[in-house]
């Protein structure tokens, strides 16, 4: 039933900065099947959002530059598509929910208008039909009294409501791929749980594939089937969600999972200190020839600092780029 919908192959994105060329995304390959949720995790500055923007064709050029690779949507290379074709794709076949529901809506148009705009542009619906579609979408995302609220403006709604409006807008043309960039970081936990339920529901009903970008492993566990862990523009580990959570192989993935105080239902009196990942994500212009994580890695040796580790499969569907697993495999 699941078929390959989107695949990114060997994508490279570079930015020209004062300090030279920064490789924002380096040799990134991911794939997405219909009805699947792919999670992308990592700290800020590791290229998660840039991956999303590349797929949407929204990388600012210049200073950005797509240096190589292909982004295939049903076999069509979006990197070769012209701007007119990309406008058809954006919002219609691939749409995106942004992180900040407070700032991503236009304050001077009613929300009904903003949702209807998408439908009118892409499907050429009449004003009345588009408003009917907007109403239908608002009901689908669970906004109470949608007939009344459709005429309201963003400032009249709470954060959770605005995020629902964003989702309604993104889904108005029934896209096949939905990219959610930290969709719930600005929201309260109880509202976050509602949004997750909503996204899972919509996915089941419409078969929309979701790319979920987050730094929260809990959110990944709740939503995703497969997980890609990024660090400094590269994929360092990629596996099914249970494999990542129960058997993380890369020291960075292990750190990301263990450095967060996870809520447990049976806390003990003892509270061992949290594992720390020392230091911060390096500036992209400072990357050397070795593994980008080596300066922060407790297991790093001379080889890690000198040479970039290749990605290798440690299990079916579980790829890791780390010299440590190379050594284990050799032993």
């Amino acid at each position: 039933m699941a078929e390959r919908l989107l695949s990114v192959e060997g994508l490279r994105v570079e930015f020209k900065t004062r300090d030279g060329i920064a490789k924002v995304i380096d040799n990134l390959s991911i794939s997405l099947d219909t009805g699947e949720t792919l999670g992308i995790v990592g700290e800020s500055g590791c290229g998660k959002s840039m991956t999303a923007l590349s797929i949407m064709g929204l990388v600012p050029i210049p200073p950005g530059r797509i240096a190589g690779g292909r982004i295939l949507l049903d076999g069509e290379d979006l990197l070769q598509a012209n701007e007119q074709r990309m406008r058809e794709v954006r919002g219609n076949e691939i749409s995106m929910i942004f992180q900040e529901p407070m700032t991503s809506l236009n304050p001077v148009y009613s929300i009904g208008n903003q949702i209807a705009e998408t439908a009118r542009l892409h499907e050429g619906l009449s004003r009345a039909d588009a408003m009917a579609r907007a109403l239908e979408m608002l009901q689908a995302v669970g906004i109470p009294a949608a007939e009344k609220r459709i005429h309201e403006y963003p400032h009249q709604m709470s954060g959770g409501m605005r995020q629902r409006v964003m989702i309604a807008m993104a889904l108005a043309c029934k896209p096949r791929v939905l990219i959610a960039d930290e969709p719930t970081t600005a929201l309260d936990v109880t509202v976050q749980a509602q949004i997750f339920d909503l996204l899972n529901d919509l996915k089941e009903k419409t078969g929309t594939a979701i790319i979920m970008i987050t730094h929260d492993m809990g959110a990944i566990a709740e939503m995703a089937q497969r997980v890609v862990v990024m660090y400094a523009g590269r994929i360092i580990e990629q596996a099914g969600v249970t494999q990542i959570l129960t058997d993380p192989r890369h020291p960075y993935t292990q750190g990301l999972i263990r450095c967060v105080p996870h809520l447990t239902r049976n806390p003990t009196v003892e509270r061992p200190p949290l594992l720390e990942i020392p230091g911060v994500v390096p500036a992209l212009s400072q990357l050397g020839s070795g593994c980008a994580f080596a300066p922060r890695c407790p297991y790093a040796d001379a080889k890690c600092r000198a040479e970039m580790p290749p990605s290798r499969a440690v299990d079916s569907g579980h790829d890791v780029a780390c010299w440590l697993t190379e050594r284990e495999a050799a032993a």
């Binding site: 809990g218 990944i220 566990a221």
Partner: peptide
């Protein structure tokens, strides 16, 4: 509140 927290534990 406790049940709304996304959990990494299946």
């Amino acid at each position: 509140l406790l049940s709304a927290v996304p959990s990494a534990d299946p």
